[in-house]
């Protein structure tokens, strides 16, 4: 799987969560907790560097979006991120 070698378990979970649509950090974390069920071995603060890394790798893109009167950094899958997750 060229191009996906450096995706670890958390990266894949994040991509899976984003497959259903664009989300901002805190909601991604909630979705990850629901997916993990019992226990998630990732503090919330660990999520944001993962998102930046995925963006650097070209799997997601982000933008500050105004939602409910607040600006939130919102992430969505790129075409590459979609393919990386399918594999």
């Amino acid at each position: 799987m060229p191009g996906t070698y450096f995706l670890d378990h958390h990266d894949r979970e994040v991509l899976a969560v984003l497959e259903r649509g664009p989300l901002y950090g805190y909601l991604i974390m909630e979705a990850l907790r629901l997916r993990a069920g019992e226990e998630l071995d990732l503090p919330t603060g660990g999520l944001y560097p993962i998102l930046r890394r995925l963006e650097r790798l070209g799997y997601v893109r982000s933008a500050w979006v105004a939602l409910d009167g607040r600006h939130r950094r919102t992430y969505e899958l790129t075409e590459m991120g979609r393919q990386a997750h399918v594999r």
Binding site: P43, T44, G45, G46, Y48, P49, R52, R53, R56
Partner: peptide
């Protein structure tokens, strides 16, 4: 939930270093 600074700062610092 967020993690201590000592715990999460290194991952942030890597992005900054890069």
């Amino acid at each position: 939930d967020f993690g201590t600074v000592a715990e999460v700062a290194p991952a942030y610092q890597r992005e900054l270093a890069l």
